[in-house]
Each structure stands twice: as C-alpha cells, then as structure tokens.
Design a binder for these strands. Structure first.
Lengths: 70, 70
DNA sequence: TTGTACTACATACTATAGTTAGCATAATCA
DNA sequence: TGATTATGCTAACTATAGTATGTAGTACAA
C-alpha cells in the first residue's frame, strides 16, 4: 500500500475513533478481534487493504454492525 | 476458501440480488467495476475473501453505498 | 437444430494481505 | 527522573486474494 486510497483512510479513522470511544488500546482491540497488535495499527494507518473476514472480526470486537464502519 | 464463512455468503448473495435488481450480467457488473468476469462469479459464490477496495468498486458499480451491502 | 448469452468451475500465476519479531518514539505516571 | 504503556515503523515470511484462460453446461431465440 503506497499512497493509501481514501476508502482505507476513512475506514482506519473510523476504527480508531470507535476504539478510543471504547477506551481500549490497539493491543486490547487486537486481542478481542484475535488479530495482531501491529496489524490493527496498520489498518488504522491505512497501510493494508483489509479483507471482509477481518472487517467482521473488528466490527464484532468493537461491538458495532459492519455497516456502522462505513 | 474451503467452506465459506457466513459473512462471505451473505455478501455474495447481496451482490447477486442487487445486480439482478439492476438487470445486468456478471460480465456487465465486472466491466463497470473494472474487475474480471470470473471474479464477480467467485464473489457471488463466496469463494473469495474480498478486500475493502474491491468492495468499494462493486458498491460504486451497483450505485449503492457500501453500508447497503451489509 | 444452430447460435447467442450467461454462468459455473478448474486450474495456474503474481500480487499482496495476513502474521510476526524487533526496535524506536511518545506520552503518562509514580 | 525512571518506569510503564501505547503506538509507529521496518522488514521478512507464508498464505491467499486478485487476475486470467479455457472448458462445460444451461436457457432461450431464430
């Protein structure tokens, strides 16, 4: 991911916003979503083009519907 | 993708439903989304774990918001 | 029947997502 | 101050998403 597409930026910002709203760290979110700490960081920084299965994992960990991430 | 996760099945069904509602073929949707014909088929059959960038392409081609795909 | 349009499916290749380890930096707090 | 916590960032590996070709089957129309 060189020069991140807008959709990834918006998604990453939304995840970060919802995570902070819940008052948890990237590490805690990673644990709840069964993903790696650095991977969550990469998603929030829009460095990875996340797949649907992981989008669902993060939504569940944040306790929101997938649609709320968009 | 062996034994497709529920989220991929639901997504594929939604894409197929919205595509048929518009009365276009997989090939026409693929053309509008700048994706390959067989790839659209794979998504509808839940054989691939689609990424966010392609989710956005399909949403635009179907003229719906990403949230409407969930 | 023959021809056309659409879809399924089976490979196979190449790009890149997913996962991890390690170190650096920044912020907060005792 | 030093210690702890949280995050950024690089680099590497391996799994798989993305792309494409070709074949087969179905359905419908001329």
């Amino acid at each position: 991911m060189d020069l991140a597409p807008e959709i990834l930026k918006k998604f990453g910002e939304k995840v970060r916003m919802l995570r902070k709203r819940k008052g948890i760290s990237q590490e805690e979110l990673a644990f709840r979503a069964d993903l790696h700490r650095t991977y969550i960081g990469m998603i929030e920084r829009a460095e990875k083009n996340i797949t649907l299965i992981n989008i669902e994992k993060i939504a569940k960990a944040l306790e929101v519907k997938i649609a709320e991430l968009f």
